[in-house]
Design a protein around this nucleic acid. Structure first.
Lengths: 202, 202
DNA sequence: CGGTACTTTGAGCATTTTCAACCATTGTGG
DNA sequence: CCACAATGGTTGAAAATGCTCAAAGTACCG
């Protein structure tokens, strides 16, 4: 059953999977400009749910208009490019969750959103709107809401970033960025062991 | 700099990211039929490395032939479909790593590969070839090699599946499948608490 | 053989979860 | 204006899952 395709205009939306026992994973975040439901290009059913996080505006494309648009080679290429972009987002998220510690994950998410919004000139003075609860952030990063809270408190104490009431204020962008790249030791990280260095040069 | 696109014919390959301090994440596994390097369709540089896991055969497409092929609408659609499939793989991997416990992650990987190979009739009697070290499996699932080992020993003791010397033998497919869906309690999982059930029905 | 790469295992430890309680804010109906 | 319920944030103590490190075992290969 073909469905609509949406382009987000303002606000934030996310795509999530839910497990039988209630666990939830938020597998992608959408910022303005992102297109939702690209898999319906090929009339495939969506496997996941998309939810608006807070108030959003979007542009809806019905399946017929979409097919007409896809006749145009340029438009088709553009959609392909959006798909490639979405895939890269997913891959980076995998790496982030698989190999980052909690503070790095949160930092990476904050930086990622900062950069995406900034590229669209939707950001002023390193502050932006993030309409997600700490539980939702946890579901996105593979953490519990409680632990997200602890990390955010730590960011706050260290004056790295403040996240309060759906607003993010980045106080130390360079440091946050280093954290987001796994280049800065977190609270308790040890220095690399000798064989980890050995592995690097091999 | 446009590069080649490859279709894997036999064997296994993977795409990985590496962090500055040596940590590695294997963000996608390729089985026969999968296409590697799709992002070069749009002349984008690849951000990740692709590695063959053991002996492989593949078909290489140089950028020129690729562009000629893409003239054909049907072929272009086919590539789009491959991209959508790749994206779905990534999303499922995110959910798996974010919300599954270690045994579920390993089970999900084994089942996923089993199903993908079976669809291509590359599997006989629930046994197949998996040319990955336990360390590589860990890098794929966000675990350490040592812990992957413990999970595999447990699968072996419980006679769920045997993974030895790059060969997987599934002994209890239904149970492995239940584990892979998060529907079966692992070693130490408690029964769902009442409010988790409450969340489910809400 | 010696070497290399991988697996296996144990002991101790760290990060993160669980569970529980309490607080803050906001909206709602009386 | 005041309960009040509902939602989300904050925090602590205990538990656990998974990690680190180290050592020994196995298998293969030149």
């Amino acid at each position: 059953m073909p469905r609509y395709v949406y382009q987000l205009r303002t606000g934030l939306a996310y795509q999530s999977h839910r497990l039988p026992d209630g666990r939830r994973a938020i597998v992608d975040l959408f910022t303005p400009g992102n297109v939702v439901g690209l898999e319906t290009i090929l009339s495939l059913r969506a496997s996941a749910t998309v939810t608006a996080a807070g108030p959003v505006k979007y542009l809806a494309l019905d399946p017929n208009s979409l097919h007409r648009l896809m006749e145009d080679r340029q438009v088709a290429l553009c959609f392909t490019s959006l798909l490639i972009e979405a895939r890269r987002r997913s891959e980076e998220l995998v790496a982030r969750i698989a190999r980052f510690e909690a503070p790095e994950r949160v930092a990476a998410m904050l930086i990622d959103l900062h950069d995406r919004l900034r590229r669209r000139r939707l950001i002023a003075r390193s502050s932006y709107n993030l309409h997600l609860t700490q539980q939702q952030i946890g579901d996105h990063l593979g953490l519990t809401g409680a632990h997200v809270n602890r990390v955010l408190r730590w960011f706050s104490r260290e004056d790295i970033a403040l996240v309060k009431g759906y607003v993010v204020i980045i106080r130390d962008l360079p440091r946050l960025r280093r954290l987001a790249c796994g280049e800065e030791a977190t609270e308790t990280r040890r220095t690399p062991t000798s064989d980890r260095i050995a592995e690097r040069v091999s």
